[in-house]
């Protein structure tokens, strides 16, 4: 298990040393959201009604932006080949990547949601529901994202392929996420949690399979 935690710690250390990578994603998230009031117009009621959809779309786009760094560098510099010779099975390596990627991209977005609440004129309750729905739904986006990144790790110009691959798969997450953020009934939140659990449970195995297939 030491290798598992060492891998997560290394991901975090690399990301923070590379200079504000997480901050760039948060900035992107906030700025995409800030575009909507300009596009829709200063109608506070309309904005508040659209807010859950806006927050979720921006979060999805921001999560896609960070996909490329999950495996590409490690594949290019040989780290992935060496990790395959570690004591951990490749599945555990991918699992550690899922956790690290969630901590480095999804968590900062959730922390930034109060800023969005102000921009979109949401009340405290609406903000709480949006943040909670992101907390329940982003693990699913992370699992799908890692899967997409693993599939395209060996492609030389695969930068945009992973987002395009996983975008259709992320649609159910978006639907239930927005429904959960709009609140009222419990069912969408439970569906969201179920999708997250399923994706996170399967993604290490499928991701490892994809990496092995791409290695040859």
């Amino acid at each position: 298990m030491t290798g598992f935690f060492a891998l997560i710690a290394r991901e975090i250390r690399l990301s923070t040393r590379r200079g504000g990578e997480a901050l760039t994603l948060v900035m992107f998230f906030v700025m995409v959201t800030a575009l909507f009031p300009f596009a829709v117009g200063p109608d506070r009621e309309l904005l508040a009604r659209l807010a859950p959809g806006i927050v979720w779309t921006s979060a999805l786009l921001a999560m896609l932006l960070g996909l490329d760094r999950i495996f590409r560098d490690d594949h290019a510099d040989g780290s992935l080949a060496l990790l395959n010779h570690g004591q951990l099975p490749l599945e555990a390596v991918v699992g550690a990547k899922v956790i690290a990627h969630w901590l480095l991209t999804a968590l900062p977005l959730i922390v930034a949601t109060p800023v969005l609440a102000v921009l979109l004129g949401m009340d405290v309750e609406g903000w709480g529901r949006s943040a909670l729905s992101l907390l329940c739904g982003t693990p699913a986006l992370t699992g799908l994202g890692v899967l997409g990144a693993a599939t395209t790790a060996g492609l030389r110009r695969g930068g945009l392929v992973a987002p395009i691959l996983i975008l259709p798969l992320a649609v159910p997450v978006l639907i239930f996420g927005v429904a959960a953020a709009e609140g009222g009934i419990l069912a969408p939140t439970l569906f969201l949690l179920a999708i997250s659990l399923l994706t996170c449970a399967l993604s290490p195995f499928l991701g490892a399979l994809a990496l092995r297939a791409g290695d040859d």
Binding site: R17, D77, G78, S79, H85
Partner: peptide, 18 residues
């Protein structure tokens, strides 16, 4: 068997910032 081997190649897997 992979866990018994060390691999050394031109791809040194060195992260510049560590």
């Amino acid at each position: 068997p992979q866990a018994l081997m060390h691999l050394l190649s031109h791809r040194t897997a060195i992260k510049p910032r560590l």
